[in-house]
Write a protein that binds this DNA or RNA. Sequence first.
DNA 1: CATGAATGAGCATTCATTCAT
DNA 2: TATGAATGAATGCTCATTCAT
Lengths: 207, 207, 207, 207
Amino acid sequence: MGNQEEKKMSEKHRKILEAAIDTFAEKGYAATSTNEIAKKAGVAEGTIFRHYKTKKELLLSIVSPTVAKFVAPHFVKSFSKEVLEGEYDSYEEFLRKLAYNRYEFIKQNFPILKIFIQEVAFHEEFQKPYFNLFKDVILPNFTKVVVHFQDKGELKKLPPETIIRFTISTIAGTIFTQRFLDQKQDFNQELEEAISFLMDGLSPGQK
Amino acid sequence: MGNQEEKKMSEKHRKILEAAIDTFAEKGYAATSTNEIAKKAGVAEGTIFRHYKTKKELLLSIVSPTVAKFVAPHFVKSFSKEVLEGEYDSYEEFLRKLAYNRYEFIKQNFPILKIFIQEVAFHEEFQKPYFNLFKDVILPNFTKVVVHFQDKGELKKLPPETIIRFTISTIAGTIFTQRFLDQKQDFNQELEEAISFLMDGLSPGQK
Amino acid sequence: MGNQEEKKMSEKHRKILEAAIDTFAEKGYAATSTNEIAKKAGVAEGTIFRHYKTKKELLLSIVSPTVAKFVAPHFVKSFSKEVLEGEYDSYEEFLRKLAYNRYEFIKQNFPILKIFIQEVAFHEEFQKPYFNLFKDVILPNFTKVVVHFQDKGELKKLPPETIIRFTISTIAGTIFTQRFLDQKQDFNQELEEAISFLMDGLSPGQK
Amino acid sequence: MGNQEEKKMSEKHRKILEAAIDTFAEKGYAATSTNEIAKKAGVAEGTIFRHYKTKKELLLSIVSPTVAKFVAPHFVKSFSKEVLEGEYDSYEEFLRKLAYNRYEFIKQNFPILKIFIQEVAFHEEFQKPYFNLFKDVILPNFTKVVVHFQDKGELKKLPPETIIRFTISTIAGTIFTQRFLDQKQDFNQELEEAISFLMDGLSPGQK
DNA sequence: CATGAATGAGCATTCATTCAT
DNA sequence: TATGAATGAATGCTCATTCAT
């Protein structure tokens, strides 16, 4: 969004992209016709195919870069000890940074992420690369963080994937509720409740 | 599944239903053609429209009863004090029953529930009734349970919806992980970990 | 034309075939649109595709059986000596039968053969099978005939393929001229001239 | 080919022409897109239309001059008696010159002539002028040659068009076979066989 | 209840051609 | 002269739906 590639685009090209995002998000990829996108973008239908060979290529060009960016920032840098100790004093602080950061990104790229979530089940092109990214990059790095704080005695000695699962479930549930159900609520407060729920549930002290 | 309505169905009718469920789940409603369903079911295309006026009616007839059943059993009976005290000795026991029960149901009706989750965003016919069911029946009854155990001192004095959210997030996350990622894991053990995480996170004691 | 397969066809199906033959012959395969065929046949465009999966399948279904029949009758039976001596007293008589027979067939199937000749250069599906049929069936059998009459002293001792080439060129040229240039001429007379030209050119006597 | 007009052409213009000839010959005019020509020529699609108002004009500009040249040289000069007696001692010598000459031309301009033969049936712009050229120039001049040698007693007293037909059929058949079937054969020898076949078939002696 | 031929609107995509740069 | 983005009509083909049998 608003990144370098879009700078080089012609007005019409940008309009096509916007129209496609809107319509894919609203009605789903399969139920959106190129005719509809063209009309909404104010261009001829043929123009779409000057920029994208197929409708599917249009979908990929919308979804891929944003999802890559969504997943990347916190985890692609390798989590050396310095990074861990320098950046996060506690698992609680790590959670807080993670949650706020992802929440902002979701707020700004909501339609594209919605398209991804809707379509990922139906397009193999999506499944493999992102599943691998998760398994090979995110999960190992996330695990390092968890082990680090388990070693410091801040977290229960559960399997790291289990702790990760609880963390992601709780934060995702909080963000999801905020977006879809009670958008008027104060997100900060909800998030702090989620964090203290998580810390209570994951701390070894009370066993 | 195997309920009364299906008993009355002709062989061909049942085949149509099965083919539709399979294909909708695999490729999505919009990307599935009635021709494809007919072929997979071994019937003429016209036969589908003898039983369902439109393709959408076929979708609704697949999704609606199952989703209703998914949502109903635990919550449709009004949760009077007797029910509560008779059936659940603790929030932990309630959780355990809830989780196992829902897990079994999901396992048996997975394709249909997948269709619902994929399509709910695109069909208003789905959104209102189920949103209302949730708001007017499930949430109030679930709230009664939570308040009941808050009164007994088993749960933190957070807003009940917050507790409900943590509960659902954690259990849904556990079931989801089981279904999609590590299907070989022992579900019982994972669920017990989730329950004890939840109880630790939601109990007032350790503050 | 008017054969068994067509008997089973619905009225609309037959109309599609007729319209396609007419239009392919008149404008060429690539320059003919399915829309045009549908209009000429008085059916909906979709109807064409109920009967033929693609436009190309329609072309093949028109051309293949007729060309097969064109090529087959004289040459598919293996030309044993009995056949040769029983059926043809002289090369001249063989020529006469061949020419009249092919001429009748061409007259009756002219548009389809025209389509074949126009399209054979562009569709590999045509080239291989018919080239092989020619090389493996027609040429060897035709060669037997020629050698037979060379042995009887009726034909020059040229390579049989050369004699075949002169024979085909002359007869094809005669038929072609008749069809395209002077259709009012008497074909019988032209053919007899061609035969006596051929016999004069191919007989060993006058060397 | 390499003539005056092409001298004045820009590099790009020449590339367009070459690409168009190749592609028209390979796939046919109607099945060739201007986009494809542009890509093969390494120019922008618009550039084609700087040089030729329409795709059809491009076709005409390719085919017309070459076909005109093919047909012209032997016959456009009016065949006065002096020409006849000066240039050709016998019908046989005339045939030999005609055949070698046309064969060389065909060899050098094969793709363009192929395009012409494929397309002549579908474009009226081709049919009339070349048919007229044949009828008004070639046929009368060719007839003069035939009559000349009939008067000298070298040829049968058949109608001249019949003799012309046998001549063209045989020579065309020889060239065609050489081009399409057995390209390894020695053309000279094949041609001499054809000529002696023609002379035997057309000489009055043996009647 | 079941068929399958038929429909015509709609689909993604390609086309020859235009035109501002 | 050459470009390449843009067009809108046309393309081959698919769609959900209808209906006579």
